[in-house]
Structures are given as structure tokens and as C-alpha cells.
């Protein structure tokens, strides 16, 4: 969180990846910690199957303007998402991209963002958990690993609020996988 206690997250990808649900889960974890949130999304026909965007603002105090204006974290799960909603970043923005579906964008550098983390999210999910589903929860794990924006236990509780019992184990593994990926990346010494 920045000095004014405002944390802004923007996630973009394609409809069906569950990014909106991901933002709602993180919002609920934050509320359980007594924080204030505003969650919004690109809405409408164009978002279904097409490019989608979910936004979340978390703060310790009242949030007046509810939309993301200067993201602390931008997570792009498709190159189209990055193209469409990757604008409006600044030197405070950390960018996460899924390197298994896109090459690292060459327009990002030290001048225009705080750092770029390219992780093979989708391919790791498939190889480790043998699933194409759960990308949004892996991403939540990555966001948590990077920011510790909420307590992990709160995040688990919020995931459990939205996931059916029979899929809960899998989703907890997905969450752990995301956090592991950040840890592993940190050990290789690549700065973000």
C-alpha cells in the first residue's frame, strides 16, 4: 500500500478466466480485515469471451473515487488484455504477465513502471495441477505473494466462501501454487 493507504489493482484477460470473481474474493478478504473496498468491472456483452477487466481498490479509509486511476498492480492474463487495458500505468505500477500465453511486452521499462514479472502462469497450472481451470485463484496467490495485501488465512476463507466444497482442495492448491511461483521467482534473484 502506498502512503495514502490506497491499493489499486487491475486485472485483465479474457472472459471466463474468472478475474471478476477473483477480484470479488480478494475484496471479501479485505472486508473481513475491516478494510474498505470498491470493486468494479468492464460490464456488458463485449466482456463475454472477449477481453475483460476487473478492478479493486482497497483502503484503510473511506474511498471517494471508486475506480482505479493509478494501479499499484496490473495483472494481464492475455496480450489483448494488456493492449486494451494496459494504459494508465505509472512508475508505481508493478506489472504481472502470463508468459506462457504472451511474450513480455517490450514497451514496459524502468521509465514507465515499477517492474515487470513475467510468469508462466497457465502452463504451470496445467503441468502442476493438471487443470486449465483455477487461473484466477493462482493469480490471487501471486498477488498475495507479491503484496501480502491481506492475511493469507483471510484469503483462504474468502476463497471458501465462493468455491463449492468438492473443488476447495484444488483451489487451495491453486492459491499455494501462485504464492510458490512468486517465492521461486524471488530466489532466482530476478528483481521485479
Amino acid at each position: 500500500m502506498s502512503n495514502d493507504n490506497r491499493f489499486e489493482l487491475r486485472m485483465t484477460g479474457s472472459g471466463g478466466q474468472g478475474l471478476i470473481l477473483g477480484s470479488i474474493i480478494l475484496a471479501e478478504a479485505a472486508i473481513m480485515e475491516g478494510k474498505i473496498v470498491t470493486q468494479s468491472q468492464v460490464y456488458g456483452a463485449e466482456a463475454r469471451g472477449g477481453t475483460t477487466k476487473a478492478e479493486l481498490v482497497i483502503s484503510n479509509k473511506h474511498i471517494a473515487y471508486p475506480k482505479v486511476t493509478d494501479p499499484d498492480l496490473l495483472a494481464a492474463m492475455t496480450s489483448e488484455g494488456l493492449k486494451q487495458y494496459g494504459g494508465g500505468i505509472s512508475r508505481k505500477t508493478r506489472v504481472v504477465v502470463d508468459s506462457s500465453v504472451m511474450s513480455a511486452p517490450d514497451f514496459l521499462n524502468e521509465e514507465n513502471c515499477r517492474g515487470l514479472l513475467a510468469l508462466p502462469i497457465r502452463s504451470t497450472l496445467i503441468s502442476r495441477l493438471e487443470s486449465e481451470l483455477g487461473l484466477n485463484i493462482v493469480l490471487l496467490g501471486i498477488i498475495e505473494g507479491l503484496t501480502a495485501i491481506v492475511h493469507v488465512e483471510m484469503l483462504r476463507k474468502a476463497v471458501a466462501m465462493h468455491i463449492k466444497k468438492q473443488f476447495l482442495d484444488f483451489n487451495m492448491k491453486a492459491l499455494d501454487l501462485g504464492m510458490e511461483m512468486v517465492e521461486a521467482q524471488a530466489k532466482t534473484g530476478i528483481r521485479i
Partner: peptide, 10 residues
């Protein structure tokens, strides 16, 4: 309006 209708807040 559209924004408030679709906004989520605690």
C-alpha cells in the same frame, strides 16, 4: 447510474 448499479462496496 451504471457505475453505482454495478459497483461492489461493503
Amino acid at each position: 447510474d451504471e457505475t453505482i448499479s454495478h459497483l461492489r462496496e461493503p
